[in-house]
Amino acid sequence: MAQEADFKCLRCGNSFRAPYSPETEPQERACPNCKSNSVRRVKEQKEAPGKK
């Protein structure tokens, strides 16, 4: 099953989930609400322990 990640549209502020795989990045994405391509992946806040 395809991995998914959270994304946020930087035009309309819409948050949504979309398929995401680090191996195939970057991918062209569009906000399902306003069709903008200014779509930013919402990264996890906490980093792995021991990571700089």
Binding site: L10, R11, P26, E28, S36, N37, S38, R40, R41
Partner: peptide, 21 residues
């Protein structure tokens, strides 16, 4: 994407940089 991170880190709304195809 790197610029969005940089702007946010500097307290600038990343929304001010738009990307469109």
């Amino acid at each position: 994407e790197k610029l969005w991170d940089k702007l946010e880190k500097n307290g600038i709304r990343p929304e001010r940089l738009q990307l469109e195809w």
